[in-house]
């Protein structure tokens, strides 16, 4: 019995969240889509996570070629996630966020100023229902789950500076209702190897906002490009408090649309590598990870992520 208990705990920690923050380029809003726990929550228990994301954007790419840039962007997010396992099959996750965006120039050009601007505010929220097609069990150590949900435009998307509407990528929210679809596959290898592998993928089908608030105009709404993210990774659990993980993340976004037409310099494809470490304690765990791009092919010229750091704290709650 004690062995099973140890195995169960190991599996649970082994399948702890490996968040994947999907925001990478100058896109609006909080990186909600993949910040959610990649696992599902056991019946009758809850799961609480708080994550801080530090996203530094100072690389400028033209297609897949890095070119010189003159400005940089810092995106910081604080994300709260609460999950509850309704029963063995069904669980629900809610994510709420706070977002801060700072833009500034890299260096002054002769007598020119080092213009700097910061915006912040509550970001968008996400509600997701997950269904365990194959619930996690001790013997098979395999889990397959699907989910679907809605991203709610709780964040402002019409912040102004000096009275002027700021660009979409300086807004804490996207202003649109979006559909979210999610799938998750997990495989553990205990007791042979204290490791597991996982794959999760998500797709965001974006709606159109009313960003410009114009009546009787074709130019009032803006639609962010649909986004597809795939994470493939593995985690290794040591006998100490430490777990280690490595994730390869592929992200693809379609071009944004304005006035029903695609917008230049939006959308593209990214591949990141994201190493991380978990520290496990009796009631909670901590996670620290970084993310670095290894491949980028962007549409047109775009400012994009140079690196990203995040720190999370996770609680398992029993009801």
């Amino acid at each position: 019995m004690r062995v099973y208990a140890i195995l169960l705990i190991s599996i649970m920690f082994g399948s702890m969240p490996y968040p994947s923050y999907s925001q990478a380029c100058c896109s609006a809003g909080t990186p909600l889509l993949s910040s959610m726990d990649v696992s599902t929550t056991p019946a009758g228990s809850g799961h609480l996570a708080v994550t801080y994301v530090y996203n530094q954007l100072q690389d400028v790419f033209s297609g897949s070629e890095k070119i010189e840039g003159f400005r940089q962007r810092l995106s910081q997010s604080l994300i709260w996630e609460l999950s509850y396992g309704i029963n063995q099959r069904w669980s629900v996750t809610g994510i709420f966020s706070w977002q801060q965006q700072t833009r500034r120039l890299n260096s002054p050009n002769q007598q020119q100023s080092l213009n700097r601007l910061t915006t912040d505010g509550m970001g968008d929220a996400l509600i997701l229902i997950k269904y365990n097609i194959l619930p996690l069990n001790i013997i098979q150590q395999r889990q397959i789950a699907l989910g679907a949900g809605l991203k709610l435009p709780t964040g402002k998307s019409n912040l102004r500076d000096r009275g002027f509407l700021l660009p979409a990528d300086m807004q804490p929210g996207t202003g649109s209702w979006d559909g979210v679809f999610w799938a998750y596959l997990y495989q553990g290898f205990l007791p042979k190897i204290t490791a597991n592998i996982f794959l999760n993928t998500s797709f965001r089908l974006n709606g159109t906002n009313n960003r410009y608030g114009l009546e009787n105009s074709d130019f009032s709404g803006y639609r962010f490009g649909n986004e597809w993210v795939v994470n493939v990774g593995g985690a290794y659990r040591t006998l100490s408090r430490f777990d280690f993980s490595i994730v390869a993340r592929y992200r693809q976004t379609a071009m944004d649309e304005f006035g029903g037409v695609s917008v230049s310099n939006t959308g593209g494809r990214w591949l990141y590598v994201s190493p991380g470490v978990n520290l496990n304690f009796s009631q909670f765990s901590l996670r620290f990870s970084g993310e670095w791009p290894v491949y980028r092919k962007l549409n047109g010229v775009q400012l994009t992520t140079s690196y990203k750091l995040d720190a999370s704290i996770f609680y398992q709650l029993q009801f």
Binding site: F70, L105, N109, Q112, S113, N115, D161, L166, D169, M170
Partner: peptide, 9 residues
Amino acid sequence: YDGGPGQDG
């Protein structure tokens, strides 16, 4: 409208 890069961006 703010075009995105900011003043002198």
